[in-house]
Amino acid sequence: MPDSPARTRPVDAALHTGLGRVLLFIYGVFALSASARALVQILSKFDEAPLAYLLSALAGVVYIAATVGLAIGGERGRRIALVSCSIELIGVLVVGTLSVADAVAFPDDTVWSRFGSGYGYVPLVLPFFGLGWIWKHRPTQPETRDDNA
């Protein structure tokens, strides 16, 4: 079939390997739970804690982006995944610390509150796996770099 170029997935797409699919499954669960939680919170009681609920929504969007980025792979997928996993890591650390230090600003839980204790600390661990995946599947340099400088 010479008429249409084959559409192939980048080799570093997480969908390509079994472990990557497990990672995507877990990311998908968190994308769903974080965004569904935010949706319910914002629709039903936004005035109670706007900051916490907006953070919930941000977390949901970030998890969705990370899931998509890891799934599609390639240069674009990598960049999406790298940015969103980094935001995740910073988010869980900053929000986790703030929610412990200043409980008044976070009266209601987000996925990142108290370092994700409400979710079995998985939100704290997950970005490391995501970033680890990106690191492990970083593109090898095709140029003249035979010494590892």
Binding site: T17, G18, L19, R21, V22, F25, I26, V29
Partner: peptide, 24 residues
């Protein structure tokens, strides 16, 4: 959903998907 995904992944990782689902 987990069973559907595990059937698409007939390797050890299929069992990991099922296991994670059973933990959730």
């Amino acid at each position: 959903t987990a069973i559907y995904l595990a059937r698409m992944e007939p390797t050890r990782w299929g069992n990991l998907i099922l296991g994670v689902a059973c933990l959730v």
